[in-house]
């Protein structure tokens, strides 16, 4: 493909199309933020109703995995950033390498989260319901915590999987992108970072607040 930018017929120029696409993704992210908003709010609200029992649930989580996972995600956003810079500076090959690296980190996150952490949570009987293993006075609050925990991590995981799909798609299309024409790389990057930011809110909710008191 040549570097001469084309554009769809409703736009005046390729630059116009690019700006429009980028505004679009920002608005979409605003919408996504409001999508996650209610969980965060109800999370805080539910904890306030019965902090001690709620926190008893939170203390059953695996802080080490949480920290490692956070590091993985931050690193992968960073890797994506370097990939984006690479294409801007003209190296398509380096972009692919860094994006692959970002993907790997994302996959590692998923593996740890669902393969290791969830599995051990389930084995420990932490899924709310009749078989919930925490007994005694904190049982209800802890169940409430784990309802939030499983719900929100599953949802975040789904977003991450979609994100991985998008990054894979970018990699597969790498040949199209040039220093001047790489809007999709930028857009997917914004989404990828957004998932990361959601996790940065979930992380303290899941692992830290309950341990703080």
């Amino acid at each position: 493909m040549s570097d001469v930018a084309t554009h769809e017929f409703q736009f005046a120029s390729a630059e116009h199309q690019r700006e429009t696409a980028i505004s679009g993704i920002w608005l979409f992210l605003a919408s996504e933020a409001l999508f996650f908003g209610p969980i965060f709010l109800s999370w805080i609200y539910a904890r306030l109703a019965d902090p001690s029992a709620f926190d008893a649930g939170a203390r059953q989580t695996d802080l080490t995995i949480g920290i490692v996972n956070t590091a993985l995600l931050i690193a992968s956003s960073f890797a994506y950033g370097v990939g984006l810079a690479s294409i801007q500076f003209g190296s398509r090959r380096r972009m692919v390498v860094w994006l692959l690296f970002a993907c790997t980190l994302g996959l590692a996150f998923l593996g740890l989260k669902f393969g290791v952490e969830w599995r051990s949570d389930l084995e420990k009987g932490l899924f709310p319901g009749a078989n919930f293993s925490i007994q005694g006075p904190t049982r209800n609050g802890a169940q409430l915590f784990f309802a939030f925990y499983f719900f929100s991590t599953a949802l975040h995981g789904l977003h991450l999987i979609v994100g991985l799909g998008l990054v894979a798609w970018i990699i597969s299309q790498a040949r199209q992108f040039t220093p001047k024409r790489h809007t999709p790389v930028l857009i997917v990057g914004l989404y990828w970072t957004f998932i990361d930011i959601i996790w940065l809110v979930l992380f303290p909710l899941i692992y830290l607040i309950g341990r703080a008191s």
């Binding site: 209610p38 969980i39 019965d50 709310p128 209800n140 609050g141 169940q143 409430l144 309802a147 719900f151």
Partner: peptide, 19 residues
């Protein structure tokens, strides 16, 4: 959240567990 609660029989709006 509502669907989760209905499917798993437990959830964040459930007064029985403090929701």
């Amino acid at each position: 959240l509502l669907a989760f609660e209905r499917i798993f029989g437990i959830g964040v709006f459930d007064p029985a567990i403090g929701g």
